[in-house]
Design a protein around this nucleic acid. Structure first.
Lengths: 250, 250
DNA sequence: CGTATCATTGACGTCGGTCAATTCGTGTGG
DNA sequence: CCACACGAATTGACCGACGTCAATGATACG
């Protein structure tokens, strides 16, 4: 089977009307100066589900803002095990790492069809240098990622199966609600396979399935046909042990 | 039993002769301008082993550079489980998080006696604003922490016991060797209890002990009296599956 | 409608956890 | 200098959460 090559056409789009202007790095620049980023960006790109924005070891020439769709960041171990590091939602900034020129230490796979906004990687340090507000914003974004990674680690390292899955689901639910307030409060479209959830949580798909059954039988949540039904938000929170999910932005 | 309060005396020290000048944030400023940080810092502080630099929920008024000793960053779950997020070695920058004024999401416990260099938390954003080189440095440091957190997550989520412990030990060994080249190549003072290692790796102390026995019997490493003997670095690397540990600094 | 992918379930095995006893090492007080 | 105390390390016996293997069902898609 052929894989799509990683070079769909780049389609320029107007920053003014961007749906995620108030998220990712772009939030750093107010109305008057959004043209700075408009000039800086290379354009937009559309990628099909299951394609890879980049793979571990690649040296992409770009950085990305996720405009639409879901992406999973992952690592692969030698025995083939895949660890999902982060489930990335629209409005995130992707591809930054300590060594900008070095090979990527993780990969980014499209879970759904995806559109991204593309920045040139090489010129990025200059942008940070020139616009302290952008630098401040990037610091905040990465610190946020770090916090989430530590949260994820705590979940995988410290919680038994049911609570681990509960935490994962609630965490995504809250993140979605935060930035993408939607029609129904108790339902959420969740394009994740059970295998992906398993790889995120360090479990097997079979066991994830059994835990989802437990959660359904206990009347907590129900996951069917890529749709998550929250039957008992209270109870889910008790299992997941999430007090809240706020962080004041600068 | 009384705990030390968190307010040991702050002892000013000269940045010029600082042992970790070339690490943490201070690396950002060259010889001529080190005085900027000298003026900015509040002084140094000494803390005894088992004391806490800060606890989850605290709102410390400071940020820290670790000068000497080992610190463990951790979170506590409601059932009492402790997850070690990171083992911090001298030269690290500690205490930054997305919400600078908000309560700390993790704690920092001294594994050994420790000395830290203290920065004022409130004035830090101004420092970033004023000195882009410092901002760039902080971005790099946090991105580095993120990468390590992802590494840790991959280890805990993806590897079975022996490999997990092997990876943990080798990782610390390499980090130590990188910044603190020491006398002997095959030996390392490791002030970590088996309980702490267990909490870092999401395992129980008993099982960590059994795995250490296996590693000893296989002739890979030997951990006794806070001293780690590397008997077979090659074999340890094969178990841990670490290709290298480099990241080019800006 | 045939085929591929994902979800579901049962039977069984094992990795790692639990409980509890013993030993070791280090520091302290008499 | 020895006796004791206390935390950490070590070990055995047992158990359960989670993994493995494999078969069957549901869904979507061309």
């Amino acid at each position: 089977m052929l894989k799509f090559r990683n070079e769909s056409p780049v389609i320029p789009r107007d920053c003014q009307s961007c749906p995620i202007r108030e998220a990712t790095v772009c939030r750093a620049l107010a109305d008057g100066r959004i043209d700075v980023l408009q000039d800086f960006k290379l354009g937009d790109r559309i990628l099909p589900a299951h394609s890879h924005l980049y793979r571990p070891g690649d040296r992409p020439a770009e950085l990305y803002n996720l405009l639409d769709g879901w992406i999973a960041l992952y690592r692969i171990l030698e025995d083939g095990t895949r660890q999902i590091l982060q489930v990335v939602l629209p409005g995130a900034f992707i591809g930054y790492q300590p060594s900008l020129e070095g090979p990527m230490l993780h990969g980014a796979e499209c879970v759904t069809d995806v559109s991204v906004c593309v920045f040139p990687r090489k010129a990025f340090p200059d942008l940070l240098e020139k616009y302290p507000a952008v630098a401040r914003r990037v610091v905040w974004l990465i610190a946020q990622d770090l916090m989430e990674a530590q949260d994820h680690l705590t979940n995988v390292g410290g919680r038994p199966g049911i609570e681990r899955v509960a935490h994962f689901l609630l965490h995504i639910y809250l993140r979605m609600r935060q930035n993408h307030p939607a029609d129904r409060e108790d339902t959420l479209e969740l394009p994740l396979t059970q295998e992906l959830i398993a790889d995120a949580l360090g479990m097997t798909p079979v066991y994830v399935n059994r835990i989802l059954r437990q959660l359904r039988e206990r009347g907590v949540v129900m996951l069917r046909n890529r749709t998550l039904w929250i039957m008992d938000l209270e109870g889910l929170g008790r299992l997941a042990e999430i007090p809240s999910l706020d962080a004041v932005e600068p």
